[in-house]
Amino acid sequence: MTRPQWRMPAETDPHDCTWMAWPSSGYALGEAADDARRAWASVALAVAEFEPVRMVVDPAAVPHARKWLGSDVELLEAPLDDAWMRDMGPTFVVGPQGLGAVDWVFNGWGQQSWARWEKDARIARQVAEWAGATLIDSAMVNEGGGIHVDGAGTVLVTETVQLDPGRNPGWHSHDIEDELRRTLGVRDVVWLPRGLTRDYGEFGTRGHVDIVATMPSPGTVLLHVQPAPAHPDFEVTRAIRLALPAQWRVVELLAPERLEDEDGPVDHSYVNHLVCNGGVVACTFGDPRDAAALEVLASAYPGRKVVGVDARVIFARGGGIHCITQQQPKVEP
């Protein structure tokens, strides 16, 4: 078997920096613009305590970004539609040529009616250029929030994202797997049936895996668990658990106690965190279960400082901390 040219490292591997995008328009900014700016800035400044942060900013929004971020975050200007860097940005990989950047096709989470993505679809290529990475083109529609790797050959995906007719019509599971092996250097593709219920609403992604499960180390999965039978994710998370390899160790991250908001059942999840150099930046929700979740994360990532950031404003816009960040791995000389 030919050895893959590229490999996506685990998020726990050393980073050169974390990339983000500043909310300047679109659904991320919303009507309460300062709430969004405050939330994105809080995440950026928390990450900056551990590693450099490079923020892509629409030229018209530079004054706002400077006001909220000060001099602690590097700003780079490019036109933007929205601010979900995990999804529109490149997926970084490493190989014999050094740093690589996979440029998936981005089409607004399966051509959502409300989404605008003409500018965002060009961001991966621009970020790759700034990072000095070799560009790896892909014909597959995908987003960074739709994949999680362990760095040792396994990737988690969901059937409702990669096989979404709005993303990859005519593609079969073996086509998806072949492309993931080519671009990420994985061997094993673990298919989960779906994502959380709220993620199938008007502003959802139709099932991103990074709100459901992640692998802090090979053979171990941190799994979002909804313990309340009245919540629709009670059955969803039970089905997801059954889809995991039987030999894996499952560490439960219980959902917050709050079950709903004005729009229905919430998808608040502690799984949607970012691992940094020496740290973990985690979602909190002003909830009684916040402290226990941070303790679980500290145990899952020994030796790292776990910092909680209130993510309710970000979740109200359709994502979390992992969704608005993208790590760039350090390339060993």
Results as ranks from 00 to 15, higher is better:
243 A>C: 10
50 F>A: 03
278 G>D: 09
261 D>V: 09
117 W>T: 00
154 T>E: 09
268 H>G: 00
25 S>A: 15
328 Q>W: 01
198 R>V: 07
160 T>Q: 12
33 A>V: 12
3 R>G: 08
150 D>N: 12
118 E>A: 15
249 R>I: 01
313 V>A: 15
49 E>A: 13
10 A>R: 09
246 A>K: 14
312 R>M: 07
168 N>S: 06
143 E>C: 05
308 G>Y: 07
71 S>A: 15
130 W>A: 00
202 E>V: 14
306 V>D: 03
301 Y>A: 01
297 L>T: 03
321 I>K: 01
57 V>N: 05
74 E>I: 01
157 V>S: 03
127 V>D: 08
26 G>Y: 11
27 Y>V: 13
241 R>N: 02
203 F>R: 15
270 Y>P: 05
292 A>Y: 05
287 D>Y: 02
131 A>E: 13
319 G>N: 13
310 D>L: 04
139 A>K: 13
67 K>T: 14
14 P>W: 06
294 L>M: 04
50 F>N: 00
276 C>E: 06
333 P>F: 00
327 Q>N: 10
190 V>D: 01
151 G>N: 10
257 E>W: 03
78 A>W: 14
18 T>L: 11
230 A>F: 07
84 W>K: 06
69 L>R: 05
304 R>A: 01
331 V>W: 10
176 I>H: 04
199 D>A: 08
192 L>P: 05
308 G>S: 10
150 D>M: 02
83 A>W: 11
131 A>L: 04
180 L>Q: 07
47 V>H: 08
208 H>A: 03
125 R>W: 07
265 P>L: 05
330 K>Q: 15
139 A>E: 15
84 W>Y: 10
284 T>D: 07
332 E>Y: 10
8 M>H: 07
219 G>D: 11
221 V>N: 03
288 P>T: 08
225 V>Y: 02
218 P>C: 04
143 E>K: 08
290 D>I: 00
329 P>W: 07
287 D>A: 00
52 P>R: 01
236 V>Y: 01
15 H>I: 02
324 I>H: 07
161 V>S: 03
58 D>I: 05
21 A>H: 04
202 E>T: 15
179 E>K: 05
241 R>L: 02
196 L>D: 02
233 D>T: 09
166 G>Y: 09
129 E>K: 14
14 P>G: 05
57 V>W: 09
126 Q>K: 12
248 W>N: 02
227 P>K: 01
239 A>H: 09
220 T>F: 05
88 M>L: 11
17 C>W: 09
96 P>Q: 13
106 F>Y: 15
100 G>I: 02
154 T>V: 13
117 W>L: 03
64 H>E: 15
235 E>V: 01
164 D>F: 06
34 D>F: 02
190 V>P: 04
330 K>T: 12
189 V>I: 06
284 T>R: 12
251 V>N: 02
35 D>H: 13
24 S>R: 11
120 D>L: 04
162 Q>T: 09
317 R>V: 04
19 W>C: 00
226 Q>M: 14
129 E>H: 14
275 V>M: 06
87 D>L: 07
147 I>L: 14
189 V>N: 08
285 F>L: 00
